[in-house]
């Protein structure tokens, strides 16, 4: 075997060194991650928490309590008969009313939030707002809103506006504004500048430019985002009742207070069905919008 040329030797040492460095980096990353994970499980008392001597048994017991004792022969009897469906869903009219209230909260909050987002998005789009200070402030505000969890906000707003849907609607509207504002401003920044320029060249003012140059371009995307957000808001509104901000959540809270686990399951199924229906409706609308949507 002949001597390796110096170039090959240099290359090999370099290669070995980079390989070693990469390996060290991966190892360090893995170590840090495992340490964090262990720490997390330890802190969240995942293994140490006192869940009784027989965790599986307790889970079984819990599931057992959630599932109602329905009786086949009495399934369609009235609600005074144990084991009938009506007995399981014993307060259905009230739940439906609260469910509808939840839908209303989600819709009203989405509309209000989308309007706020619309205004904010024009104020923080690079191509439509020339003053950097305004852009910066609006952006930071929207970011701060997005960091704050809805329910924490709801907790504070319930303290101010009292128990009821008002606090819930304001909460959802604010958080909708935070998330949609960002998305809308991104849509605004992708507007085709040539159309705006053509309008400017024909002497149109700012308002007309927005109306004919921006709105037709962005409206389909706006609507699509707002509908996705509506789905999210419905789920959000269902949880808000737990802190007293209106909607069906209050019944969940009540069911737990009286340890009616089967009632909890009943209401949960109602909520899930409600979310599912709105999902389907909104998806249908969105597909139509993307497909053959007409501009306004």
């Amino acid at each position: 075997m002949s001597e390796l040329s110096p170039a090959v030797v240099a290359f090999e040492t370099l290669r070995r060194r980079t390989l070693r460095r990469q390996r060290m980096q991966s190892l360090a990353g893995l170590l840090i991650f495992s340490a964090l994970l262990l720490l997390s499980f330890q802190r969240s008392q995942f293994f140490s928490s006192d869940i009784g001597g027989d965790p599986l048994g307790r889970i079984g017991d819990f599931l057992n309590r959630m599932v109602p004792d329905l009786k086949g022969d009495a399934l369609f009897a009235d609600r005074r008969t144990d084991g009938s469906l009506a007995w399981w869903f014993y307060d259905l009219p009230r739940w439906l009313r609260l469910g509808w209230q939840t839908v209303e909260m989600a819709v009203v909050a989405t509309v209000l939030g989308a309007i706020g987002a619309l205004l904010a998005s024009f104020l923080c789009a690079r191509n439509l707002m020339p003053i950097p200070a305004v852009r910066f402030t609006v952006r930071r505000t929207l970011e701060a809103i997005r960091t704050l969890p809805d329910l924490i906000l709801a907790l504070m707003l319930v303290a101010a506006f009292g128990v009821g849907p008002l606090a819930g609607v304001i909460t959802l509207a604010i958080s909708t504004m935070g998330s949609l504002g960002k998305l809308f401003s991104e849509v605004n920044e992708e507007v085709d500048p040539r159309q705006l320029e053509a309008m400017r060249a024909s002497g149109a003012g700012y308002a007309a430019m927005i109306r004919y140059g921006v709105v037709p371009q962005v409206l389909p995307n706006y609507t699509s985002y707002a509908l996705i957000r509506l789905e999210g808001n419905l789920a959000g509104a269902a949880a808000l009742g737990i802190v007293g901000a209106g909607g069906i959540g209050i019944e969940l809270q009540r069911a737990i207070t009286y340890t009616e686990f089967d009632t909890y399951l009943a209401i949960l199924l109602l909520i899930v069905g409600m979310i599912f229906l709105i999902d389907i409706a909104s998806e249908a609308i969105r597909h139509r919008l993307i497909g053959l949507g007409e501009a306004r």
């Binding site: 159309q195 320029e197 004919y212 371009q217």
Partner: peptide, 8 residues
């Protein structure tokens, strides 16, 4: 590029 609003 004509610069029309294609959606209108």
């Amino acid at each position: 590029q004509f610069n029309l609003c294609p959606r209108l």
